[in-house]
Nucleic acid binder design. Structure first.
Lengths: 162, 162
DNA sequence: TAATCGTCGATTAAATTAATCCATGATTAA
DNA sequence: TTAATCATGGATTAATTTAATCGACGATTA
């Protein structure tokens, strides 16, 4: 169980869009080149981000992508959900409901449709993770990077994209 | 990103081992039959559980598996880790270290090997989930099932395995 | 000694993820 | 108006992971 590389590509790429002015945008080509990623694959990633309303696209030459919301309103979880969809990390196939006793005989009380406890626990566990990821926003990330990354590096990125 | 069905098979199967007396054991064949699962595949699951010290095996005819620890000392997380191994849910390939500026020119301050913030956040998020899953044990699960499952059903299982 | 059961490795099948290719339509600059 | 640039989307291929089966082996019991 692992998140796809798309999530990594998305989160890393979005960092470069944070400080881009409203009317400006950055193209896939530059984002891919700067990070050493596949251009076509990264475009798939941004397709998903756009569909989720995280970024908006500018078509045509000199076009590209920009954030569609305020960075403080875009959480890690938003990004993950945009990429991975809404399916839970654990999906009980309800093997519990298919046990031998039930197959053989008839069992009225077996028809009670209670939620599988195991499934419930897994879903609650995911909720813990989700809450944490929802609390971390792109705005927060940007601040953290400003503090921990050499300024030379931040400047280099800024220079590359302008 | 989803947990494998092995995790589901493991958790569901372990329930039936909780109340088994010390000197007794239940075989793969019965566990598989009762739940309608593949016998050979379930044996792979128990191979992992045995290697992790969660269950112990009894070879030979009339053999099978039993819990190796007290149910209160076996958590959901223990089981998941036994099955899925120890790899984190997110492994940053550090594409941040691979950006264009660095490949072209040399940048001393870029050699500082700070941990990628994005990676750190993801790992902390996983930790939240892990903490929750570590707090739920098989003993707890057993109690919960006793409360929420029709007794007819619990008896049916017990009868099947004895 | 034969049947039963766990163990292990190899193999196959199915499903998912990663990545590429190509055709299309919007936009800008020459 | 035309050519180049860019996002968009579908189809396709390749690689990786997961699911499942098969067969051989050793331990155990009746």
């Amino acid at each position: 169980m692992k998140y796809s590389v798309m999530v990594e590509y998305a989160l890393h790429s979005l960092v470069y869009l944070i400080d881009v002015p409203e009317e400006d945008s950055i193209g896939i080509k530059k984002l891919a080149e700067f990070q050493g990623l596949s251009e076509t694959y990264l475009s798939k990633v941004f397709g998903k981000l756009a569909k989720a309303g995280i970024v908006s696209s500018v078509p045509g030459v000199k076009g590209g992508y920009r954030l569609q919301k305020n960075p403080k309103d875009i959480s890690f979880w938003d990004v993950i959900q945009a990429i991975e969809g809404h399916k839970p990390i654990f999906q009980c196939k309800n093997i519990r409901e298919n046990f031998a006793y039930r197959r053989d005989k008839t069992c009225d009380s077996c028809d009670v449709h209670s939620i599988c406890t195991i499934n419930k626990v897994m879903l609650e566990a995911e909720q813990q993770m989700r809450d944490y990821l929802s609390s971390k926003t792109l705005a927060w990330l940007n601040e953290d990077l400003k503090d921990h990354l050499p300024s030379e590096r931040i400047e280099a990125a800024k220079a590359f994209f302008t």
